[in-house]
Amino acid sequence: MQQLLIPTDFSENAWNALKYGLELFKKTECTIHLLHVNSIPPYSGAGTSVQAAGENFKDILLKESKISLQELLVRIEKLPANDRHTFVPIALYDYFVDTVKRESETKKIDLIIMGTKGASGLKRATIGSNTGDVIVKVKCPLLAVPEDAAFSPPGEIAFVTDFHIGYDPKVLDTLINMAVLHNSIIRVLYISKKGEELCDEQVKNKDFLDD
């Protein structure tokens, strides 16, 4: 059974990423963890009264999040029924990336699915700040779904590499499983400079991918 983690902020972009994931794995038995994180503000209150107010604020946020998650489940129920999918709503109050990392480890997540809207600044304009942070800091395969992307079965998948990275077999298994589901072709793409030859490390990693 696949364990999927889909963070949501209840935006249409997050909804689109969720629908994309459901279509991608519609033939697979999955437990889908729907995670909403109420991020801790970058400051802490001082004093008992402020702390008490903060705790009350946390309770209010979590209550609202749980309601929104139930509304999301109702929206999901309006999609074509799929008895292969089980949904687990999760509402937490914590730092976003830390939470995603912890949940992916404790629940043995096979794949994280996130939308890419929400970029701040040119550097992250293609993926968004939260998605970019998760890619960098969380050791779990992640599928980034571009804003307004419409699902179509992946006929061909491009695996772009410079052969300098030795890949974790779990990451490759996730990719292979996705390809098998849709009879997709995986094409490993390496682009070299003119006259450049592979070093010993690159040859080793290339042979690993061939295997």
Rank of each mutant, 00 (worst) to 15 (best):
M1F: 11
E105Y: 00
I157W: 03
V74Y: 07
N177R: 14
L61T: 05
V50Y: 10
A53Y: 13
A158W: 12
R124V: 09
A91N: 05
E23G: 04
G54D: 09
H36M: 02
N177D: 13
C140F: 02
G45M: 12
K170Q: 13
Y190T: 09
Y20I: 04
A17V: 07
K108I: 04
D9E: 01
V74I: 14
N16C: 08
T116K: 08
V37N: 10
K123C: 07
T161M: 03
L61M: 15
F57L: 06
L5R: 05
K170S: 12
H33C: 06
E201M: 08
N82D: 12
G128R: 05
V100K: 05
T31A: 03
Q3C: 08
K170M: 06
E156D: 13
I60F: 03
K194S: 09
N82F: 11
I76F: 02
P153G: 07
T31Y: 01
K27N: 15
A14G: 11
I127W: 08
Y167D: 08
F208G: 06
P89H: 01
I165W: 02
K27H: 14
M114L: 06
T174I: 10
D173K: 15
K27S: 13
K117E: 13
P146L: 04
F57M: 07
I176E: 14
T116G: 11
S184T: 11
K63E: 09
